[in-house]
Nucleic acid binder design. Structure first.
Length: 237
DNA sequence: TATTGATCATAT
DNA sequence: ATATGATCAATA
């Protein structure tokens, strides 16, 4: 992706203010200001919305390890919502550290670290809406509540336990209350070193941790008295 | 039609 | 190759 990028924010306050200034704008407007072309659809540009918002907010370069706002310790997540304010998709969090997973407690896990501080930026996400016409919603700077963290930690223990015992190949997306494990790869032929039940090294499809829709939906629902896309929501309900 | 399993693009 | 950003599309 070429084009301009905003300077990094120096505080959470500044970051949030900047994100709030995006609310109600369309993706076409943001793209124009950054000198970017809007793709006809997201089939061949799946990360485009996230990368666009990163640039608009001055996040560190995409595909660079670590938090999006390294100085602030904040992770940025765009969240595609349907007309009722429900997430259209699950939310990718991080890859599964196949071999180290058994040695990591919840607090030392990449899952915990990534979710410690998140700036959620809702964006209209229904496929029928042209990408450029989609509106950005009101942002939310979030950390898990005690209740949410308890659920996340419980899922980590369960999922990491299965993987740590070599059960990665039998682990399906049905396991986990808030978090699930699903493939995360360029295609089905990708293999990565993992361990089977006997501790023998095997090649397995890379997996990632994803947040279920029910979990992210609860986050945005609790935070907005009105629909999450208030300024961007032109629905007639 | 909601969810799971599969996949796409870019940067380093 | 790996990590970033996610959404697509077949299936149950």
């Amino acid at each position: 992706m070429r084009g301009a990028s905003a300077p990094p924010p120096e505080s959470e306050r500044e970051l949030l203010a900047r994100a709030q200034s995006l609310a109600g704008r369309t993706l076409a407007e943001l793209a124009a200001e950054l000198g970017l072309a809007v793709p006809p659809d997201l089939r061949r540009a799946k990360g485009w919305v996230g990368q666009l918002v990163e640039r608009a907010l001055g996040a560190c370069a995409a595909s660079r390890p670590g938090p999006d706002f390294a100085a602030l310790g904040v992770e940025l997540k765009t969240l595609p919502l349907d007309r009722h304010g429900r997430p259209c998709e699950t939310t990718f969090v991080c890859n599964v550290p196949m071999r180290a997973v058994s040695e990591l407690s919840w607090r030392d896990s990449p899952l915990c670290h990534k979710l410690a501080r998140v700036l959620w930026v809702p964006v209209e996400g229904e496929r029928q809406l042209p990408v450029g016409a989609r509106h950005v919603g009101a942002p939310l700077l979030w950390s898990p509540s005690a209740e949410e963290e308890a659920v996340l930690a419980g899922d980590w223990e369960e999922l990491a336990g299965i993987i740590g015992r070599g059960g990665i190949e039998s682990l399906t997306a049905r396991v986990g209350r808030a978090v699930q494990v699903r493939p995360k790869a360029a295609h089905g032929g990708v293999r990565r070193r993992s361990l089977d039940a006997e501790g023998t090294s095997i090649d397995a499809l890379p997996r990632g941790f994803y947040l279920r829709v029910s979990f992210t939906e609860a986050i945005v629902r609790r935070s907005y008295a009105a629909p999450a896309l208030r300024r961007g929501d032109r629905s007639t309900r």
